[in-house]
Amino acid sequence: MSSSPVWNLDASDGRLLVHTGVTGRAAKMGHRLTIAMTTWLATVRWSGGEPVEAELTVEVESLQVVKGEGGLKSLSGPEKVLARSNALGVLDAQRFPQIRFLANDIDKSDDGYLLTGTLEIHGVAQEREIGLRVEDLGETWRLSCQADVRQSEFGVKPYSMMFGSMKVVDSVTVSFTAERTKEG
């Protein structure tokens, strides 16, 4: 990869999505949500042609419910608004306005890089390893990764209703895809 001292990527360069599941006796009534985080910044610092540090900061308030699959009927506009409000409440967005991942150990892998660092959600920090895939598309690099995050490990109680007979699955899947134009 060609290098420059710092790469900055944001929502104009790609997508950061959260995919939820639903469980419980009344799970068939609920929707599996696709949530877009619409305000984020990824910064990659380079040295000697290799990435040495990567940081991702996500604004929790930017959470938008994109779609819902399953359920007894389609997810309506007002239900998307309610689902967003519930998610912001569960994440306590007022108190914890950002989610951060700081990788200060980056190693090459077969298809990209292994990023090791600290993920902070809801004021709780934990060490994580994330495999970042890098694809050469000719004019651009495509960066992508997917990671499962267990909400309860970060002090987040998954949303539930009807006395727990329908609730969001504790483990959510986060996916990231971005493209970066090659330089000179």
Rank of each mutant, 00 (worst) to 15 (best):
D170N: 08
Q126E: 08
L91V: 15
G49R: 05
T39S: 14
E179S: 11
A26M: 14
D10P: 05
Y159Q: 15
E55Y: 05
R180T: 02
V90S: 14
E129P: 01
A11R: 06
R15G: 13
T116E: 05
A87E: 04
D105S: 03
V44M: 03
T177W: 04
S47L: 13
D148T: 11
G49T: 06
S4H: 08
E179H: 04
D107S: 05
F101M: 12
S47K: 06
F96L: 13
G30V: 01
E127W: 00
D107L: 09
V174Q: 01
G70R: 02
T23P: 01
G164A: 09
R180A: 10
T38P: 03
D148P: 03
T181W: 12
L143D: 00
K67W: 04
T177Q: 07
V18E: 00
S152I: 02
R25N: 08
G24A: 07
L9P: 00
V174I: 03
H19K: 08
H31G: 00
D110K: 11
G117T: 06
M29L: 07
T39A: 14
S152T: 09
T116N: 09
G123E: 01
Q64L: 14
T118C: 09
H19Q: 07
V169C: 08
G30S: 10
E79M: 14
G70W: 00
N8Y: 01
T140I: 10
L143Q: 01
N104M: 03
T38S: 07
Q64T: 15
A103D: 03
L114R: 08
K108S: 15
E139M: 13
A93Q: 06
K67V: 02
T118I: 08
G138K: 15
E79H: 11
S109I: 11
T140G: 11
L102V: 10
H31I: 07
A83G: 12
V90Q: 09
K80H: 04
S47V: 02
I106P: 00
D92C: 04
E153D: 05
R133L: 03
V149G: 02
V168D: 04
S76F: 15
K182I: 15
M166W: 02
M161A: 12
E53H: 14
